[in-house]
Nucleic acid binder design. Sequence first.
DNA 1: TCCCTTATTAAAATTCTTTTCATGATCGGT
DNA 2: ACCGATCATGAAAAGAATTTTAATAAGGGA
Lengths: 287, 287
Amino acid sequence: MDIFSTLQDEKARLSPSENRIADILLNDFEFAVNASIIELAEKADVSPPTVTRFCRRLGCESFSDFKVQLARTAYVGMRYLKPEPKSTNPGDVAQDIITKAQNALFLLHRSLDLAAIELAAERLSRADMIYAFGSGGNSSMIANELQNRLFRFGLHVTASSDHGMQLMMAAAAKSTDVLIGSSFSGRNGELVRAFTLARESRVTTIALTQSNSPVAQVAEIVVPIDLQEGSNIFRPTSTRIAYLAVVDILASLVAYAIQPKAAVALRRIKQQLVAHRDGDDRQLLGD
Amino acid sequence: MDIFSTLQDEKARLSPSENRIADILLNDFEFAVNASIIELAEKADVSPPTVTRFCRRLGCESFSDFKVQLARTAYVGMRYLKPEPKSTNPGDVAQDIITKAQNALFLLHRSLDLAAIELAAERLSRADMIYAFGSGGNSSMIANELQNRLFRFGLHVTASSDHGMQLMMAAAAKSTDVLIGSSFSGRNGELVRAFTLARESRVTTIALTQSNSPVAQVAEIVVPIDLQEGSNIFRPTSTRIAYLAVVDILASLVAYAIQPKAAVALRRIKQQLVAHRDGDDRQLLGD
DNA sequence: TCCCTTATTAAAATTCTTTTCATGATCGGT
DNA sequence: ACCGATCATGAAAAGAATTTTAATAAGGGA
């Protein structure tokens, strides 16, 4: 577990002096990782022993252990306390985007519901047919991605971003099928309808969405993904990266669950692709 | 700049003793970040002053500064030295995938050609019409993503993953248009043809691909993305995440270049979406 | 109010880190 | 092969930083 979550958890129970130390960590992090215990103590207006105790309280061996933990967490975890890009020049924008993406992954990792993912993977790997639904630029990409990943293992999958088709497919699905749907906002009413319909025939329904959202409420298995977008309206990507990572995890688990079948299918696809190009075997599966 | 690249650069010039220290960092990193200078010196079979000198050589103030730098870089940067997932249980798979994704972003950030990106963004923002091409599950997703991002700014874009259409569109494009194509492998022969055709009419051509690949060779502007996939054939995702991040950067720079126009278009799209749902304004742009 | 618990620190002890200086090795040029 | 210069290294000393100890202060009930 990392320091910042511990800090969040403990902050209320901290004494006034310790709170001053915590504040420095949160506000002037750069200073904190570089300072000696004495400097830090001075800045917080406490004595060095208080700092040592503070570190121990947060689960560290010693002050230097604490600094290492801090630095380690911070590379990724800290940045979300400093929200916006410094300027619109390419270097800063790139840095900001990449940091946000790494953060999204970091937060995702922390909040993953592994049990749900495992269950979802298990159902997917046994499905007679898989329907992957999602609409709007983001979720439809996820639906396509699911198709793209799963068909390679020899599974039967189709993706749709068309509400009408989704409803018809949901109505036609059987109890041995799986419907997996993505909704970033959790408020895709049509998807809710499709899920509801599918559950009437006891089709397994899996939702990748925000927990406690309308979509989450109607799905049998919910893989919660709770990340809020940064306030910059131009940029919805980091959440998508998190979704992609979840799909990746799901697909990998499915692959492991059905190893032999998947390997055969993959080999065939690969041969097909290589024949179609110039025989370079090192290329990707697909482009 | 981070310690690991410095280490890579310097390693050849290091003395034998210093090399032993470097080896410990690379092989037993966990030990290294937690050890005191004395422990580290002992393990490397050198004296503490040698360690101090080693740290200075790598550009750090002191040993403790060095440890902080190390820990900071390591959270993301270090992991790629330990390649494969430990097991196929969900926790390990998730950890492995997320680490790889973060690494892909980390390596991408290091190798970004900002000048090329800036130039590409500038051309995109002035284009009369943008054609986004890509085939195969991965690149076609990127093409769609480009469309999805750019149309929101009021630009004219179309994406295609169909070779025939691509050729026709490339033939029809004018010199005020921009053709942007993605190829993970760089060996998409049809895309090469489309690029070649487009350049005959002096259409601006932008490639997101591996440097020095066939696709890169025919494009006017190359945004190089050079990451090799891990050896696990089940998993091509982390490269895609890097491509997505590049698209994100490009799209953001385009947005900044054409601010007012983009903001208006976005507002309209947002109203449309909100009206269509249940009026919750906090949701994403699209699902 | 008094006593107990907890928080805090000054000072001492300890441990870690760096500097200094001396030694040994290496290398290029005679 | 020899010499001198440069570099690498470590022992010991000096200097910091950190932790422990033990004593004080500050709250919070009985």
